[in-house]
Structures are given as C-alpha cells and as structure tokens.
C-alpha cells in the first residue's frame, strides 16, 4: 500500500511537468498578449513592460525559469493583469474562499445526495422514489447560472433573508455585527456566520447532489439485488443492518470514484458562483485570466487544479482499497 502511494506520488511529478508544458504551448499559441489592450502603448513602453515580466526572452527560457521558480522557491511570479499582486497573493486570497464554500457544497452534496439515492433505491417504484428521481432530474436540468440569479431574486429581493452576494470574511469572523442573521458568537472567541455562505453552497452543490443521488440509487439497486444481500435477508437480519452494514459500502464505490474529480471541481470554485455572488473566490480567475492573457495566473491556477486532481484521485484509489477487500495494490 505504501509503495503504491509512493509510486503514485512519483508519477505526479512528470504528470505536472507535462501539464505545465502543454499549458505553456497553448498559452503562447493563443493570439494576443497580456499588455496593451485596445490602445497599445508606444513600443518603448511595451518593451519596458515585457522586459519586466521576462516576456522578451525566448519561450523555452521563460518556461525553464518559470519551472525553476515554482520548484525551488514556490514562487508563481507576478500577476500580469493585477500589477500590485503576485500569483501567490491571488491564490492565497481566493482559494480559502472557494475552499470554504466548496467544502460545504461537497458535504451537502454527499449527505443529501446519498440519502436521497438510498431512500429512492430501497423504496423503488414508490412515491418516494418518484419524488427523489423528479428532484434529481430537475436539479440536473437547471444550470447554476440560471439558479444563482433566481436564488438572489427569491432570498434577497423577495424575502430579504440573505445578502445577494459578497463574502465579508466568510464563515469564520472576529465577531458578529448587530443585526447579522445566522451569525453565532463563539464563547471561546470569534464567531461563525453562515449568511454569505448559503446561496453559493446551494448554487454549487445542487447539480453535484443530483448526480450523486442518481449514481447512488442505481448502484444501490444493483447491490440490493445481489446474492450476498439476499443471503443476509434470508438470515433474517433487520433491514437497517442490511443496508448500513452490508449494502451501503459496496454501493458507494461508484460514488467515490465520481467524488474525486467532483470535489476538486467544488473546492476550486466555479466561475458562475464567483461572478453571481461576488465572493472574490478563485473560480472567476479560470476565465478572467485566460481572457486577459494573464499567463502567470493561468499557469498558477492550472498547476493548483492539476495537483489537487492528482491528489484526490490518489485518495479515491486508497479509499477503494479500504472499502473493497477485493482490491489490493
């Protein structure tokens, strides 16, 4: 097992390097550049800027010095678009935000999705099943760029319960302001506030929740019809024990392989959620940095997402071995 993990981590390094090289090639192949915009400055000014960011060097030199800085100094360079910030600043500021609402979304998606899926499977072809299937189809059909503004219209403009956007420090803050809803002072210091979190979590988790519910339902149905469950039932074990002790673990295997990339997707945020709720998260930079040709931010985020994907896929494989005794590495 340990040698398996070590091997996988060793493969991660060349994988990331290939990712970097491909991203570099794609980036430089795209027309246009990060500076100038509609009114390109005089050539001398442009030359100064390019010299400052090393863009006057040959591509191969740029790539090598980039990799060197990342590997030896963990320095992702200065942002081209935001002149007063480095990529490390951009990620350090935005990633905790998406990590917060992403982790909560993952939790909500798993808990609600698995419960719905299991309930639908063991009450197959009853009203509960139809309801669960209806909800999940609806949730999957409704894209989050439609749902986000609808949530704001309902909860902010209509009911006035939740703020329409912003982050204001997020979940853990120093103290609640007077009149803050859903904010709880911690007797041991600090405070927890949920009001800015709820709408982004709903918008982000819904479609993941639906997928998880549907995967759980079909895999649960399959497991419930298998021989060892029939045996368990025949032995007269109570239903609850059959489900939680015997059926759930194997039924969750497909859910776990789905969760690897899905959790990465959630904790690195979504451009739709970031834009719709102005959270200041890192999701919006996926798109913005590409449009503004902010090479350094594009690379920084690509590496972040790449590394997280490798990590979570490894985690999934380890979980597999733990759950399924048939799998041995």
């Amino acid at each position: 097992m340990y040698s398996f993990i070590a091997k996988r981590l060793a493969i991660a390094v060349p994988t990331l390097l290939i990712l970097i090289i491909f991203s570099f090639i794609l980036m430089f192949a795209a027309p246009g550049g990060p500076f100038g915009g509609e009114r390109p400055p005089p050539a001398a000014v442009l030359a100064n800027i390019e010299a400052r960011y090393g863009l006057d060097q040959p591509y191969i030199v740029q790539m090598f010095s980039y990799v060197k800085n990342v590997v030896f100094h963990f320095d992702f360079g200065p942002s081209f678009q935001y002149r007063d910030r480095t990529v490390n600043d951009v990620i350090a500021q935005g990633f905790p935000v998406t990590l917060t609402y992403g982790a909560w979304s993952a939790l909500v998606a798993v808990v609600v999705g698995v419960s719905l899926g299991v309930a639908a499977a063991i009450r197959q072809n009853t009203w509960l099943d139809y309801l669960a299937v209806g909800i999940t189809i609806g949730a999957q059909a409704l894209p989050n760029f439609v749902m986000a503004p609808m949530l704001v219209l309902l909860f902010t403009l209509g009911l006035g319960w939740l703020p329409g956007g912003g982050w204001s420090g997020g979940l853990l803050i120093d103290a609640c302001d007077a009149g803050d809803r859903l904010c709880f002072n911690n007797p041991f210091g600090g405070a927890v506030r949920f009001d800015y979190l709820i709408l982004p979590v709903i918008a982000l988790s819904t479609s993941y929740m639906a997928s998880i519910a549907r995967i759980t339902r079909s895999s649960m149905l399959e497991v419930m019809n298998s021989n060892f469950i029939r045996t368990a039932m025949a032995k007269g074990l109570p239903m609850r024990r059959v489900i939680f002790r015997h059926a759930l673990k194997p039924a969750l295997l497909p859910v776990i392989s789905y969760l690897g990339p899905a959790v990465v997707g959630m904790i690195t945020g979504s451009v739709v959620v970031d834009v719709a709720f102005s959270t200041g998260g890192i999701g919006q930079f996926f798109v913005n940095s590409a449009f503004s040709r902010d090479y350094a931010v594009i690379m920084g985020i690509t590496i972040l997402v790449g590394a997280l994907t490798i990590l979570f896929n490894l985690l999934v494989d380890v979980l597999y071995a733990w759950i399924d005794p048939k799998i041995r590495y």
Partner: peptide, 18 residues
C-alpha cells in the same frame, strides 16, 4: 467599492438596497 462581475447582479443588489 464592491467588485461585481455581472451588471445584472449588481442591479439586483441595488434594488435590494445593498
């Protein structure tokens, strides 16, 4: 100054008094 990438969203929050 709030940075809101979507002008329709900004408009909604204006109407909500934010």
């Amino acid at each position: 100054a709030l940075i809101i990438n979507d002008s329709n969203q900004a408009l909604t929050r204006y109407l909500a008094g934010e």
